[in-house]
Amino acid sequence: MKTLILKTASAYLLPVLLVFSVFILLRGHYLPGGGFVGGLIAAIAFVLHAFANGLKNTKGLLQFHPGFLMPVGLGLAFLSGLAPVLGFDDPFMTGLWLPYDVPVLGSVGSALFFDIGVYFVVIGVTLTIIFTISESA
């Protein structure tokens, strides 16, 4: 499926889709979206790139195995839950919030970092499964 049009388009689509996925991730707190959908969209962006340019090129672009995103995301999510225990002596997963709103993002708290963790895990899981299957099938 290496058509010139798709190949050319994918070079522009990948960054656009990735930015879109981050946008979906961040807006999740107020409007439809969130880490899970964001992660899926990011994964689709990479899969599209792989379809157009071949798996090797996508892997070369990524520089590391997508599986590494799983422990990173899990760690981030877990730490965001652990932060109140370590820092404030509150029970696990208590929400912590900055007292003021950050421009663009709105109110920022531990839940945002949790969602970013989910985002990374979903990208890692989806890409690991798809890359592994397409390599060995």
Partner: peptide
């Protein structure tokens, strides 16, 4: 502090469930 109830449930009210779910996802991968 969130207006999207679905997302707030996922990342805050039932956050521990989500944490376990993403762990399961990672195990599946």
């Amino acid at each position: 502090h969130g207006k999207n109830v679905v997302n707030v449930i996922l990342v805050d009210f039932r956050g521990t469930d989500t944490l376990i779910e993403i762990s399961v996802l990672a195990i599946a991968a």
